[in-house]
Design a protein around this nucleic acid. Structure first.
Lengths: 215, 215
DNA sequence: TTTTATTGTCAACACATTTGAAAAACGAAC
DNA sequence: GTTCGTTTTTCAAATGTGTTGACAATAAAA
């Protein structure tokens, strides 16, 4: 059932979206769904769905389709959402607070266990009942708790130094919202750069093109 | 100089990153850069950079490289960052406030001109000196100001209804942070879904894989 | 004028997506 | 209970797209 072929990055990037749609379907009373039906709802081709899901072994049944609950659980498992890795947040400004409050870490495979900031005024405040500590405390915290992931909501000038400290402390993954490009050049370190700005610029380009077409 | 070949989406997605790196280089005293040098800094191949930039015409010079300032400006222009399209924000909760405060709209081709929310307690408060108005006022505002883009930081249950209203009012682009998948099925409408959750799940998968390799 | 550096471009390659044919499972009819 | 047609997956092959490597052309430097 579990194939050993390396799964392409393109497929992995689509899995969360499948997971989301299947989660919605779970709330309805529909039990099964065909690739064709799902493709119509998601706006992609049925063959792509079939091929994607097949990378992980056949969850579907001919003449029946896919069982929604089973498929949802299986994708969740593939993504590792059923694990519970400790994550820490660095930077409790506007963005950090929004991320901490807005994201459902516990249903995404993570548990937010500490928050750090450099601003003395913020120390002691609580977000989601987690106290904000000074970044000086990062070392002592990590040596005891060994968080796997750090969420970086800090200015780009601070990013390099902070990430180096955290790598030395055994942090393996970064969810990076800062405008600094963390390259995953260190082997054994995973970086997911978010870069909302880039997404906004892409939108700018596309709207410009749209208006150009019309004229 | 301006080729008419359709530019692939993959190239467009890379442009903001080039723009960012070139912006950093501008601050140094370096005037020119070769594709090889830039590729080393950005962690990709030199030939990809040359091919990407060539889509828009030859900005480089053999034996010299690329002039950083010229290239930076040119990419900014291609992305449309020198335009100033009106954008409105819907939803002034945690996330909406963070987006409004954190993003540098004016250097990304947009101008944030109004903020709407349904929560009566927020009405009248100001973010970046823009007053929060009730969503009831969207219609009258749009009929006068014709904003081109809407930024959606609202619950997924509200997304469909709000976006339909805005499309009817002439909004052409959506920067969608809600967990609802806006498909750009309406022709003439551009949607950029952000989905931070998806990015977090991808990170979860990759860390899981990393840990698996080691064992 | 020669040498060196570096682009622009094209062809080969790798990767991703789509198509098509075959096999499997379901459900209805007998 | 068996058969048959339909649905739908699975697997393999073909197409399409994106990336990389090689090299001729060209500009700068010496």
């Amino acid at each position: 059932m579990a194939h050993d072929k390396p799964i392409s990055r393109a497929v992995i990037k689509r899995l969360p979206r499948y997971y989301r749609f299947l989660g919605e379907l779970l709330k309805s009373d529909i039990v099964r769904i065909s690739s064709r039906e799902l493709s119509a709802r998601m706006g992609l081709t049925a063959s792509q769905i079939r091929q994607d899901l097949n990378c992980f072994g056949g969850f579907g049944q001919q003449g029946y389709g896919y069982n929604i609950q089973e498929l949802h659980e299986e994708i969740g498992h593939i993504l590792g959402l059923d694990q519970r890795m400790d994550a820490i947040l660095i930077g409790a400004g506007n963005l950090g607070r929004a991320v901490a409050n807005h994201m459902d870490f516990d249903n995404r495979g993570f548990h937010l266990s500490a928050i750090f900031d450099e601003n003395p005024q913020l120390i002691g405040q609580r977000i989601k009942n987690i106290p904000i500590e000074h970044t000086d405390k990062m070392e002592s915290f990590c040596k005891i708790n060994h968080p796997m992931v750090a969420i970086l909501c800090i200015p780009k000038t601070a990013t390099k130094a902070i990430s180096d400290r955290l790598i030395a402390l055994g942090v393996k993954g970064f969810w990076n919202f800062s405008h600094y490009d963390l390259l995953n050049q260190h082997s054994g370190i995973i970086v997911e750069n978010v870069h909302m700005s880039d997404s906004l610029m892409t939108l700018s380009y596309e709207i410009k093109e749209l208006l150009k077409e019309k004229s």
